[in-house]
Design a protein around this nucleic acid. Structure first.
Lengths: 268, 268
DNA sequence: TCGTTTCTCGAACATCGTTCTAGCATGGAC
DNA sequence: GTCCATGCTAGAACGATGTTCGAGAAACGA
């Protein structure tokens, strides 16, 4: 399982046509702020304080400079998040293809992506609205496609499969990480009127038991299944659920592949 | 397929224990702003102008009042989004269980959820960090569980399955709707430096062809599969991909159900 | 040495969510 | 009819945010 966590981008990648600013490779100056330093600081702050706490002024403070200085390097906050996003995509480990093991390898990719998303619980939210075309994102797609191709999937199914893998794992980790963004643990429980949408519970114990208790108190004649399965809800294990998900997904993908080609490689 | 789009919540639902404000049911006053009017206006603005354009002042303007007035009714912007979210969940159609057709019915739910998410492209983003416990959300869970139970799924698998259905469809529609949030079509394409993460393309033609052209220009020795499948990428059809997804999901769920029970109902 | 390019950053702007507070209107109690 | 408590409105202001502007400093090539 080679990692290939290159933050060094290969020089072979051409400049994308929609590019704007000139190439600001780190020359000049001795040490002060650089684009990389800004990105690293942003990630550190995001990990420590959550997405909502990140502001340009906060980053600048951390670097001992003013907010305006950042804009020369990253263009905008959104542009900075582009860079953060691509850097974090680089943390996902994607093994070199071993044709006989493509199904297991696909699961490994899914697990690695989930782990990265749990390590940086804001990353899925950052990814929204961004077409992943940074160097690490391209590497990601290329290597996933390589695995699928090694499994003998026809091109169309391989492309669809790689798309679905990302969005499926993202969907799963989205509700795993969406609640309780704030790493300082200062989450609250608020609602209004007779409408209730629980916000951000934390501590896993209080949270699930509050929800379970509320569910158990619902009128059984209106919500028979919900009441009957309240215990099951509180017992629901994310790990187990995730394994079920990728099992269903990879299995189904292999089945479609086998029915499109002349079977043969559906077995393992 | 009964719709049951009741925005009238049954009186049997007890007050959730985390509730705060007193019950502000619409009494008094003739017509001015009410909670429902605020929610409806918010949804109308969201549909017309996108999530980023929604502000309390904008809503207040639309209602011919001041922003401060809204706070008496909805508590906070986040609380307002709670209400918006639950209202939109009510648009998802969930049929009454027909035991022999539970697999088709599950797909119908998935399609209906996707359609609602496409009608309101901001709803998935709004849902992030919200545990769906409003009246319509409860109705949703109850009815999905009913379908799964009618299919003979054991409780644990039914709960896991209903969870996975939501997050899987959400994951899919998230990258379908994440790009191009602004309904006014004023999306831009920006990037910086040698890092590229395409932002918000629109028009589907220019967008995909820009991406395709860029992919085709990548160095084949570094990204052989990406270059080879560039055409396939531009041809990728969301409808086809979604059908593949729910087919894999429902099929896999049925297979697991059959292997846990004594087969029997895995067939259809 | 000079001029140009690269980079810094204080000040300011518009916009946002939210709070404060004074005020109006209504309905019930006497 | 008078009075008061409650329900509700809304202008002004606060603090925070992303971003722009423009003046200036530093470093490099000529």
């Amino acid at each position: 399982m080679s990692v290939d966590k290159a933050s060094e981008q290969p020089h072979e990648i051409p400049q994308p046509p929609w590019q704007r600013l000139p190439d600001r490779s780190a020359k000049r100056r001795r040490d002060p702020i650089s684009r990389d330093a800004i990105v690293d600081t942003a990630i550190r702050l995001l990990d420590a304080e959550g997405l909502d706490a990140l502001s340009m002024r906060r980053i600048a403070d951390e670097l001992g400079t003013g907010a305006a200085s950042l804009y020369w390097h990253v263009g905008s906050k959104d542009g900075l998040l582009d860079l953060v996003f691509d850097k974090l995509i680089g943390e996902v480990m994607i093994p070199d293809p071993e044709p006989g093991r493509w199904r297991q390898q696909l699961k490994e990719v899914a697990r690695s992506q989930r782990e990265a998303s749990l390590r940086h619980p804001y990353v899925v939210r950052i990814s929204i609205g961004r077409i992943p075309m940074g160097p690490n994102a391209l590497r990601y797609s290329e290597r996933v496609l390589a695995i699928l191709a090694s499994g003998g999937l026809p091109p169309r199914l391989a492309v669809q499969g790689s798309h679905l893998l990302i969005s499926t794992v993202n969907g799963f980790t989205l509700d795993e990480t969406g609640v309780g963004d704030d790493p300082t643990g200062a989450d609250t429980v608020t609602t209004q009127g007779s409408n209730a949408t629980v916000r951000a519970y934390r501590g896993e114990d209080q949270g699930t038991s509050i929800v379970r208790d509320y569910m158990a108190k619902l009128p059984p004649q209106v919500f028979p299944h919900l009441v009957a399965m309240a215990d099951e809800y509180s017992r629901a294990d994310p790990e187990e659920r995730f394994e079920l998900l990728i099992d269903i997904f990879v299995d189904g993908l292999a089945r479609r592949a086998a029915s499109q080609t002349g079977d043969a490689e559906a077995s393992q």
